[in-house]
Write a protein that binds this DNA or RNA. Structure first.
Lengths: 217, 217, 217, 217
DNA sequence: TATGAATGAGTCTTCATTCAT
DNA sequence: GATGAATGAAGACTCATTCAT
């Protein structure tokens, strides 16, 4: 009467699909109107499920929010960490390499979901301080650490003049992101990607003027 | 008990006092729990007035929020602009001058009300985009412009090597503020002022390494 | 423009009327469908007020229930205590006196509101044990004590042979009320008052057979 | 693993066990939180079955409640009727015989399940009046009838002076149970068995004072 | 003008009940 | 027959806003 495990996997797929639909819909709604203003009615409608289904899967509005935030942040953080794989390791092509990395980081930063999570985290920092810490520890903190490592390696090889790599890493991203928040009204507006590109290139330029071993190359 | 305009001025004083009390109470409540979660009951209680009095004075919750934001932002921006009056204009004492300015800017940035406004503006950027623009135009944009002017003057005098003063101004504050938001969890936590000081000094250092006419000092 | 205190009293009257209407409506609804099944919508409709008005006056469903119970019980207890004022104090007319008291007690017991409170208290004894205690202490306990006093006085005068007046008081009302709960399905059904009367008279008869100083009078 | 009717009987046993588990769990839950507050989730969890299984076996919440009440009441009534088997039939040992019966009745009355059913029946008398009638007819009414018969026999033999045996039967249990409901807060609290014993003995004493042929023996 | 009281709309959450497997 | 998942309906409670005084 049935085809066996295919059927079961179909059912499981249905379950997971529904959960996924809820979480994604919730992210969209939260991003659109904020945590407090988002009603479970909106989210249920957006996800195409009944309201109690959300409770069956996620338990409560607060829990739903936490899941949405951590899962989306994890995805975004993963993409950001991948960028470091193309980080330059030699003096040869240092500037274009850094520009490439900076461009990719800007792309990650301005990714729609990434902006949404960041804005929501900021907005609800008072209500969910622990969530803020958790996301930061598992994301930005690790990223800064990794970036500092790459910079230190370049410094050791004499390609950069850096005393405090962690601080330099922080300054690198400060320069690269610079006015992104302002340009996009904290992510609530689309942002011209050429503007962002220019900012990134300028940030790399200043970074190399400050830390390049021979005034940049 | 008294007559004539004295009475009227007394009553006017009372009215203004009441309005002021409402706005200040509203800022505290909004900062504590956010816009959506703040109820007019809380605000009325905190201000020591009856709920309808808020409507008499400010009209609606949204309007109250707008007034609170713009008035508080204006006060904060005023203080920030004053900092520029001590901006150095000569090569002599350039580094300590910039460090002094950076320290004062950090103090302004980390001022409690200032953080509260910034956080609320961020949090409600989607719901009140016009408010965001208005505050930015009357504050940060003017500040950047003024800062760029000071930097251009220093560059013209040969004390700094700067091509694009506006960009340099943005980078200056990016370097100075750097990780302030992270350190204070976007303003929801007190922040060690010595840490902030160190960040500011390091930011100035990097800025001068990049833009100093002779490698700094 | 106004007639002075009349106007104010009118407004106060309106307030109190509204509160009274809520409490009375709540008693009716609770009695009709029980605590858990009673919705504030029903109560608000029955009282002719808006739902939040109930919250303004009474705070919560639980609190409303407590007020309804204690206020109604106090009224019922008051009436019951008044019955004792006609309690016989002499051997002359002892039996008719006791029968009169018994009849009045049955009337109090079978009073609609009284039955409703008793049934609700029983029904919700698990959820509101403290309420149960409070009502019992301020009502039945005091009544038994007072009744025991009257019986003791009769015993001292030699009109009754009673060793333990409190026990005798309990047995008196046990005999008088006897099968009232069963007859009225615990108060959920009207009860034939002649049946009740007979039970009361028979109860007095048995009581006097047991405690009368000369086999009854 | 096995075949034929063994398998079927095993499965039947399982089904009946499951049904029994559901009914017993339901009684516990209903007793603990009342009818309206008891959710099928609680009951399913307490019974260790899935929610739809309850529907397969009992059909609906209301039906489940009816079954639980009637089955438990039948069990309790059976035990109560058994007590009458030891009812004294001679003048010799009348008082101790009645005291023995009274004690056993109190034990039945204060049995945990018995109290739970009584309380639930009282609590839901308005919602389930027919259930109340059904249980009363099959239980208390028959018991009173049987008790009246025993008393009549004793009266006929000259051991008691009773005109209306049914009334005397009702008064007997009224005196014996007397303040049990109050002592145990209508069964929602454990009750000191020595207190109950004393009440029973005192009830028998009064009963014999009233109806004993020679002042009791 | 300032306020106590009232309310209509909307929020989160729970529950009895039913499908699909 | 037993179950995990889904849902429509309903409930307690809150809030921004408006009258009447």
């Amino acid at each position: 009467m049935s085809v066996g495990d295919t059927e079961k996997s179909t059912s499981d797929r249905g379950r997971l699909d529904k959960r996924r639909a809820i979480v994604e819909a919730a992210l969209r709604v939260f991003a659109r109107v904020g945590y407090a203003q988002a009603s479970l009615d909106m989210i249920a409608a957006e996800a195409g499920v009944a309201k109690p289904t959300i409770y069956n899967h996620l338990g409560s509005k607060e829990n739903l929010f936490r899941h949405v935030m951590t899962e989306t942040a994890a995805r975004a953080n993963g993409k950001t960490m991948e960028v470091l794989e193309s980080f330059p390791v030699e003096a040869d092509g240092l500037r274009p390499g850094l520009e490439d990395v900076a461009g990719k980081l800007v792309a990650c930063y301005t990714d729609e979901q990434s902006q949404a999570v960041r804005r929501l985290l900021y907005a609800e920092a008072v209500r969910f301080p622990d969530l803020f810490d958790q996301v930061r520890a598992s994301g930005p903190d690790q990223f800064i650490e990794a970036l500092a490592g790459r910079l230190a390696r370049l410094a050791n090889a004499g390609h950069l003049r850096i005393e405090d790599p962690v601080r330099a890493a922080n300054q690198f991203i400060a320069l690269v992101y610079e006015e992104l928040p302002t340009l996009s009204t904290f992510g609530s507006r689309p942002l011209d990607s050429r503007d962002a590109e220019k900012v990134a290139v300028a940030g790399v330029d200043t970074f190399l003027r400050a830390f390049g071993s021979s005034g940049g190359s």
